[in-house]
Design a protein around this nucleic acid. Structure first.
Length: 360
DNA sequence: TTCATTTGACCATC
DNA sequence: GATGGTCAAATGAA
Protein backbone atom coordinates (compact mmCIF):
# COMPACT_ATOMS: atom_id res chain seq x y z
CA UNK A 1 0.00 0.00 0.00
CA UNK A 2 2.68 2.44 1.03
CA UNK A 3 5.38 0.74 -0.86
CA UNK A 4 6.11 -1.32 2.17
CA UNK A 5 6.91 1.64 4.35
CA UNK A 6 4.78 2.45 7.21
CA UNK A 7 3.40 5.82 7.88
CA UNK A 8 5.79 6.43 10.71
CA UNK A 9 8.77 5.28 8.79
CA UNK A 10 8.06 7.70 6.03
CA UNK A 11 7.50 10.39 8.56
CA UNK A 12 10.76 9.59 10.19
CA UNK A 13 12.62 10.07 6.99
CA UNK A 14 10.73 13.24 6.28
CA UNK A 15 11.64 14.58 9.66
CA UNK A 16 15.29 13.80 9.23
CA UNK A 17 15.34 15.35 5.82
CA UNK A 18 13.52 18.35 7.09
CA UNK A 19 15.97 18.73 9.91
CA UNK A 20 18.85 18.53 7.55
CA UNK A 21 17.34 21.18 5.34
CA UNK A 22 16.86 23.46 8.28
CA UNK A 23 20.41 22.87 9.37
CA UNK A 24 21.68 23.79 5.96
CA UNK A 25 19.66 26.93 5.97
CA UNK A 26 20.89 27.77 9.38
CA UNK A 27 24.46 27.34 8.36
CA UNK A 28 23.91 29.79 5.60
CA UNK A 29 22.37 32.24 7.96
CA UNK A 30 25.13 31.88 10.44
CA UNK A 31 27.49 33.32 7.91
CA UNK A 32 25.21 35.94 6.52
CA UNK A 33 23.47 36.56 9.85
CA UNK A 34 20.28 38.28 8.77
CA UNK A 35 18.16 38.11 11.86
CA UNK A 36 18.06 36.29 15.11
CA UNK A 37 14.44 35.51 14.54
CA UNK A 38 15.27 33.66 11.41
CA UNK A 39 17.84 31.67 13.26
CA UNK A 40 15.40 30.89 15.97
CA UNK A 41 12.87 29.61 13.53
CA UNK A 42 15.44 27.49 11.83
CA UNK A 43 16.63 26.07 15.06
CA UNK A 44 13.09 25.33 16.03
CA UNK A 45 12.57 23.51 12.83
CA UNK A 46 15.68 21.48 13.31
CA UNK A 47 14.88 20.59 16.83
CA UNK A 48 11.32 19.80 16.06
CA UNK A 49 12.26 17.52 13.25
CA UNK A 50 14.76 15.61 15.28
CA UNK A 51 12.49 15.45 18.23
CA UNK A 52 9.82 13.82 16.19
CA UNK A 53 12.20 11.55 14.43
CA UNK A 54 13.55 10.39 17.72
CA UNK A 55 10.13 9.90 19.07
CA UNK A 56 9.29 7.71 16.18
CA UNK A 57 12.48 5.80 16.52
CA UNK A 58 12.03 5.40 20.17
CA UNK A 59 8.45 4.48 20.17
CA UNK A 60 7.22 3.36 16.85
CA UNK A 61 10.29 1.87 15.39
CA UNK A 62 12.00 -1.33 16.23
CA UNK A 63 13.28 -1.15 19.71
CA UNK A 64 16.79 -2.02 20.55
CA UNK A 65 17.08 -5.34 22.14
CA UNK A 66 18.30 -3.67 25.21
CA UNK A 67 14.74 -2.75 25.97
CA UNK A 68 13.18 -6.08 26.51
CA UNK A 69 10.35 -4.84 28.58
CA UNK A 70 9.06 -2.37 26.12
CA UNK A 71 6.59 -3.40 23.54
CA UNK A 72 8.65 -3.80 20.48
CA UNK A 73 6.46 -3.11 17.59
CA UNK A 74 4.80 0.09 18.56
CA UNK A 75 1.78 0.79 20.55
CA UNK A 76 -1.02 0.56 18.08
CA UNK A 77 -0.59 -3.11 17.67
CA UNK A 78 1.01 -4.04 20.85
CA UNK A 79 -1.94 -3.82 23.15
CA UNK A 80 -3.95 -5.86 20.82
CA UNK A 81 -2.26 -8.37 18.74
CA UNK A 82 1.33 -9.01 18.21
CA UNK A 83 0.79 -10.57 14.87
CA UNK A 84 -0.97 -7.56 13.56
CA UNK A 85 -4.30 -9.17 13.22
CA UNK A 86 -7.10 -6.69 13.20
CA UNK A 87 -8.15 -5.55 16.51
CA UNK A 88 -11.60 -6.72 17.28
CA UNK A 89 -14.32 -5.26 19.31
CA UNK A 90 -14.01 -8.21 21.54
CA UNK A 91 -10.94 -6.66 22.85
CA UNK A 92 -12.56 -3.35 23.34
CA UNK A 93 -15.28 -5.01 25.29
CA UNK A 94 -12.63 -6.46 27.45
CA UNK A 95 -14.00 -9.97 27.56
CA UNK A 96 -13.53 -9.62 31.23
CA UNK A 97 -9.91 -10.44 30.91
CA UNK A 98 -8.28 -8.38 33.58
CA UNK A 99 -4.82 -9.49 32.70
CA UNK A 100 -5.34 -8.23 29.22
CA UNK A 101 -6.63 -4.96 30.47
CA UNK A 102 -3.63 -4.58 32.64
CA UNK A 103 -1.42 -5.08 29.64
CA UNK A 104 -3.24 -2.38 27.79
CA UNK A 105 -2.80 -0.04 30.63
CA UNK A 106 0.87 -0.80 30.91
CA UNK A 107 1.49 -0.36 27.25
CA UNK A 108 -0.45 2.81 27.08
CA UNK A 109 1.90 4.18 29.62
CA UNK A 110 4.70 3.36 27.29
CA UNK A 111 3.33 5.58 24.62
CA UNK A 112 5.35 8.63 23.79
CA UNK A 113 3.91 11.65 25.39
CA UNK A 114 4.43 15.27 24.63
CA UNK A 115 2.67 18.42 25.45
CA UNK A 116 1.71 21.14 23.09
CA UNK A 117 0.73 24.37 24.68
CA UNK A 118 -1.30 26.67 22.57
CA UNK A 119 -2.03 30.19 23.49
CA UNK A 120 -5.14 31.75 22.17
CA UNK A 121 -4.80 35.22 20.93
CA UNK A 122 -8.02 37.06 20.38
CA UNK A 123 -6.10 39.83 18.73
CA UNK A 124 -4.99 37.89 15.80
CA UNK A 125 -8.05 35.78 15.77
CA UNK A 126 -6.11 32.64 16.10
CA UNK A 127 -7.93 30.07 17.96
CA UNK A 128 -8.33 26.46 18.65
CA UNK A 129 -5.64 23.96 19.36
CA UNK A 130 -7.75 21.13 18.21
CA UNK A 131 -7.85 21.36 14.50
CA UNK A 132 -4.55 19.68 14.07
CA UNK A 133 -5.52 17.77 11.01
CA UNK A 134 -6.49 14.64 12.78
CA UNK A 135 -9.89 13.43 13.61
CA UNK A 136 -10.43 13.20 17.30
CA UNK A 137 -13.30 11.77 19.19
CA UNK A 138 -13.96 12.89 22.67
CA UNK A 139 -14.38 10.04 25.04
CA UNK A 140 -14.32 11.68 28.39
CA UNK A 141 -14.09 14.75 30.47
CA UNK A 142 -12.93 14.99 33.99
CA UNK A 143 -12.56 17.58 36.65
CA UNK A 144 -8.99 17.61 37.74
CA UNK A 145 -8.02 18.31 41.27
CA UNK A 146 -6.65 21.77 41.60
CA UNK A 147 -7.56 22.69 38.11
CA UNK A 148 -10.20 25.24 37.37
CA UNK A 149 -11.14 23.77 34.07
CA UNK A 150 -12.01 20.18 33.30
CA UNK A 151 -9.72 18.04 31.25
CA UNK A 152 -11.03 16.60 28.05
CA UNK A 153 -9.95 13.29 26.66
CA UNK A 154 -9.79 12.57 22.99
CA UNK A 155 -8.82 9.58 20.97
CA UNK A 156 -8.36 9.07 17.30
CA UNK A 157 -11.62 8.64 15.45
CA UNK A 158 -10.09 5.75 13.58
CA UNK A 159 -9.08 3.88 16.62
CA UNK A 160 -11.34 0.99 15.91
CA UNK A 161 -11.26 0.99 12.17
CA UNK A 162 -7.58 1.56 11.72
CA UNK A 163 -6.21 0.57 15.02
CA UNK A 164 -4.88 4.01 15.70
CA UNK A 165 -4.23 4.49 19.38
CA UNK A 166 -3.27 8.10 19.45
CA UNK A 167 -4.93 10.06 22.19
CA UNK A 168 -4.77 13.55 23.48
CA UNK A 169 -5.83 15.44 26.53
CA UNK A 170 -6.85 19.05 26.45
CA UNK A 171 -6.45 21.01 29.60
CA UNK A 172 -7.09 24.68 29.87
CA UNK A 173 -4.52 26.45 31.93
CA UNK A 174 -5.57 27.84 35.24
CA UNK A 175 -3.02 30.57 35.27
CA UNK A 176 -3.67 31.68 31.78
CA UNK A 177 -7.06 30.68 30.39
CA UNK A 178 -5.85 31.60 26.97
CA UNK A 179 -3.45 28.72 27.08
CA UNK A 180 -4.54 25.20 26.31
CA UNK A 181 -2.20 22.45 27.17
CA UNK A 182 -2.63 19.55 24.84
CA UNK A 183 -0.99 16.36 25.83
CA UNK A 184 -0.60 13.91 23.02
CA UNK A 185 -0.03 10.27 23.57
CA UNK A 186 1.01 7.88 20.93
CA UNK A 187 1.46 8.60 17.30
CA UNK A 188 -1.11 8.31 14.62
CA UNK A 189 -0.98 5.21 12.57
CA UNK A 190 -4.26 5.80 10.89
CA UNK A 191 -2.93 7.95 8.10
CA UNK A 192 -6.14 9.89 8.03
CA UNK A 193 -4.33 12.92 9.00
CA UNK A 194 -2.35 15.95 8.19
CA UNK A 195 -3.50 19.46 7.58
CA UNK A 196 -3.05 18.88 3.90
CA UNK A 197 -5.81 16.36 4.07
CA UNK A 198 -9.01 18.03 5.06
CA UNK A 199 -10.58 15.98 7.70
CA UNK A 200 -14.10 15.08 6.79
CA UNK A 201 -14.82 13.80 10.22
CA UNK A 202 -17.63 15.55 11.84
CA UNK A 203 -15.96 15.18 15.15
CA UNK A 204 -13.82 18.15 14.39
CA UNK A 205 -16.82 20.26 13.70
CA UNK A 206 -18.62 19.08 16.71
CA UNK A 207 -15.60 19.59 18.75
CA UNK A 208 -15.27 23.07 17.47
CA UNK A 209 -18.74 23.81 18.59
CA UNK A 210 -18.05 22.49 21.96
CA UNK A 211 -14.83 24.30 22.46
CA UNK A 212 -16.26 27.46 21.04
CA UNK A 213 -18.87 27.25 23.62
CA UNK A 214 -16.22 27.27 26.27
CA UNK A 215 -14.21 29.94 24.63
CA UNK A 216 -15.04 32.17 21.76
CA UNK A 217 -11.56 31.96 20.44
CA UNK A 218 -10.27 28.55 20.26
CA UNK A 219 -10.46 26.76 16.97
CA UNK A 220 -8.07 26.64 14.08
CA UNK A 221 -5.38 28.14 16.18
CA UNK A 222 -2.81 25.56 15.57
CA UNK A 223 -3.14 25.37 11.88
CA UNK A 224 -3.22 29.08 11.52
CA UNK A 225 -0.35 29.49 13.85
CA UNK A 226 1.58 27.00 11.92
CA UNK A 227 0.77 28.71 8.69
CA UNK A 228 1.51 32.06 10.13
CA UNK A 229 4.84 31.02 11.43
CA UNK A 230 5.59 29.22 8.28
CA UNK A 231 4.83 32.37 6.39
CA UNK A 232 7.13 34.24 8.69
CA UNK A 233 9.67 31.65 8.18
CA UNK A 234 9.39 31.86 4.47
CA UNK A 235 9.20 35.60 4.27
CA UNK A 236 11.94 36.21 6.73
CA UNK A 237 14.32 33.77 5.32
CA UNK A 238 13.44 33.79 1.70
CA UNK A 239 13.58 30.12 1.78
CA UNK A 240 13.38 28.20 -1.37
CA UNK A 241 9.73 27.55 -0.95
CA UNK A 242 9.64 25.06 -3.70
CA UNK A 243 11.88 22.93 -1.71
CA UNK A 244 10.08 23.65 1.45
CA UNK A 245 6.77 22.91 -0.05
CA UNK A 246 8.03 19.60 -1.13
CA UNK A 247 9.26 18.94 2.29
CA UNK A 248 6.05 20.02 3.74
CA UNK A 249 4.15 17.65 1.62
CA UNK A 250 6.26 14.86 2.80
CA UNK A 251 6.02 16.20 6.24
CA UNK A 252 2.39 16.78 6.71
CA UNK A 253 1.12 13.28 6.83
CA UNK A 254 2.43 13.05 10.31
CA UNK A 255 1.33 16.30 11.63
CA UNK A 256 2.70 17.95 14.67
CA UNK A 257 1.44 21.29 13.60
CA UNK A 258 2.78 23.32 16.37
CA UNK A 259 5.90 21.39 16.67
CA UNK A 260 6.65 21.88 13.06
CA UNK A 261 7.26 25.54 13.48
CA UNK A 262 6.73 26.36 17.09
CA UNK A 263 9.37 26.88 19.63
CA UNK A 264 10.48 23.72 21.13
CA UNK A 265 11.07 23.47 24.76
CA UNK A 266 12.61 20.36 26.08
CA UNK A 267 11.46 19.78 29.54
CA UNK A 268 13.03 17.55 32.03
CA UNK A 269 10.34 15.32 33.27
CA UNK A 270 11.08 13.78 36.54
CA UNK A 271 9.86 10.49 35.32
CA UNK A 272 11.20 10.67 31.87
CA UNK A 273 13.49 7.93 30.83
CA UNK A 274 15.33 8.98 27.81
CA UNK A 275 17.50 6.78 25.81
CA UNK A 276 21.15 7.46 25.56
CA UNK A 277 20.61 8.82 22.13
CA UNK A 278 18.11 11.24 23.40
CA UNK A 279 20.25 12.15 26.28
CA UNK A 280 23.04 13.23 24.07
CA UNK A 281 20.94 14.87 21.45
CA UNK A 282 18.54 16.53 23.74
CA UNK A 283 21.33 17.52 25.96
CA UNK A 284 22.92 19.29 23.11
CA UNK A 285 19.65 20.87 22.25
CA UNK A 286 19.27 22.13 25.69
CA UNK A 287 16.28 24.15 26.55
CA UNK A 288 18.66 26.57 28.09
CA UNK A 289 19.82 27.62 24.75
CA UNK A 290 16.51 28.76 23.53
CA UNK A 291 15.73 32.33 23.43
CA UNK A 292 13.10 33.15 26.00
CA UNK A 293 11.39 35.20 23.42
CA UNK A 294 8.76 32.73 22.53
CA UNK A 295 6.15 33.86 20.10
CA UNK A 296 3.19 35.17 21.89
CA UNK A 297 0.74 33.05 20.12
CA UNK A 298 2.29 29.71 20.44
CA UNK A 299 4.87 27.84 22.26
CA UNK A 300 5.63 24.25 22.31
CA UNK A 301 6.97 21.98 24.88
CA UNK A 302 7.79 18.41 24.65
CA UNK A 303 7.66 15.80 27.27
CA UNK A 304 9.78 13.11 25.95
CA UNK A 305 8.44 9.62 26.18
CA UNK A 306 8.07 9.22 29.82
CA UNK A 307 8.33 5.57 30.19
CA UNK A 308 10.02 4.38 27.13
CA UNK A 309 13.53 4.04 28.22
CA UNK A 310 12.80 1.79 31.13
CA UNK A 311 14.88 1.36 34.17
CA UNK A 312 18.18 0.63 32.60
CA UNK A 313 18.40 4.12 31.32
CA UNK A 314 17.23 5.79 34.41
CA UNK A 315 20.66 6.77 35.46
CA UNK A 316 20.93 8.98 32.43
CA UNK A 317 18.13 11.17 33.38
CA UNK A 318 18.13 14.60 34.68
CA UNK A 319 21.59 14.51 36.06
CA UNK A 320 22.99 13.59 32.73
CA UNK A 321 20.91 16.13 30.97
CA UNK A 322 22.09 18.78 33.21
CA UNK A 323 25.62 17.68 32.86
CA UNK A 324 25.44 17.68 29.15
CA UNK A 325 23.70 20.95 29.10
CA UNK A 326 26.13 22.58 31.37
CA UNK A 327 28.98 21.13 29.45
CA UNK A 328 27.76 22.50 26.23
CA UNK A 329 26.80 25.82 27.54
CA UNK A 330 30.03 26.16 29.34
CA UNK A 331 32.10 25.29 26.36
CA UNK A 332 30.68 28.23 24.56
CA UNK A 333 28.28 30.91 25.38
CA UNK A 334 26.75 30.79 22.01
CA UNK A 335 23.85 28.46 21.76
CA UNK A 336 24.15 28.60 18.07
CA UNK A 337 27.64 27.42 18.33
CA UNK A 338 26.39 24.65 20.46
CA UNK A 339 23.97 23.67 17.84
CA UNK A 340 26.52 23.86 15.15
CA UNK A 341 28.81 21.79 17.19
CA UNK A 342 26.12 19.28 17.80
CA UNK A 343 25.22 19.05 14.21
CA UNK A 344 28.78 18.63 13.27
CA UNK A 345 29.12 16.04 15.86
CA UNK A 346 26.12 14.27 14.56
CA UNK A 347 27.57 14.63 11.17
CA UNK A 348 24.86 14.72 8.63
CA UNK A 349 26.53 12.40 6.33
CA UNK A 350 25.08 12.30 2.86
CA UNK A 351 25.96 8.67 2.91
CA UNK A 352 24.23 8.16 6.17
CA UNK A 353 23.03 4.62 6.04
CA UNK A 354 19.34 4.66 6.28
CA UNK A 355 19.28 1.09 7.24
CA UNK A 356 16.81 -0.32 4.87
CA UNK A 357 16.44 -3.33 7.01
CA UNK A 358 14.99 -0.93 9.47
CA UNK A 359 12.32 -0.14 6.94
CA UNK A 360 11.14 -3.40 5.59
C1' DT B 1 -30.10 6.44 10.91
C1' DT B 2 -25.57 7.36 11.97
C1' DC B 3 -22.15 9.25 14.56
C1' DA B 4 -20.24 12.29 18.17
C1' DT B 5 -20.71 14.10 22.79
C1' DT B 6 -22.00 13.86 27.56
C1' DT B 7 -21.59 11.97 31.90
C1' DG B 8 -21.80 8.71 35.61
C1' DA B 9 -19.48 4.58 36.74
C1' DC B 10 -15.68 1.64 36.81
C1' DC B 11 -10.82 0.51 37.09
C1' DA B 12 -5.84 1.18 37.94
C1' DT B 13 -2.43 3.54 40.21
C1' DC B 14 -0.37 6.00 43.87
C1' DG C 1 -8.99 6.35 49.86
C1' DA C 2 -8.04 9.86 46.37
C1' DT C 3 -7.19 10.77 41.83
C1' DG C 4 -6.72 10.23 36.93
C1' DG C 5 -8.01 7.71 32.84
C1' DT C 6 -11.31 5.07 30.32
C1' DC C 7 -15.70 2.88 29.28
C1' DA C 8 -20.27 2.77 27.71
C1' DA C 9 -25.22 3.90 27.94
C1' DA C 10 -27.93 7.83 27.10
C1' DT C 11 -28.61 11.73 24.49
C1' DG C 12 -28.39 14.98 20.77
C1' DA C 13 -27.26 16.76 16.19
C1' DA C 14 -26.93 16.37 11.25
Amino acid sequence: MDGGWSFEQKTLISELIQGMEFAKELRGHLTSAPSTEARDVLMQGILSSYEKALLILQWGGPMPQSQPVVAVSGIPESPLSVNGSPRSDEFEKGIGDHQQNRDISKKRKLMPKWTDQVRISSENGLEGPHDDGYSWRKYGQKDILGATYPRSYYRCTYRNTQNCWATKQVQRSDEDPTVFEITYRGTHTCGNSGPSVPSPASSEKQEQKQINHQSNHHQHLQQQQSQEMLSKFRAGLRVDTNNLDNNEKAYHPFSFPSASVGLLQIEHCSSSTLTNVNSSLFGSFSSTFFSPSTPESCYFSMHQANDLGQAHNMQHLESDHNEIISTNTSSTNSPIMDLEFSLDQVGIDPNFPFDTSFFP
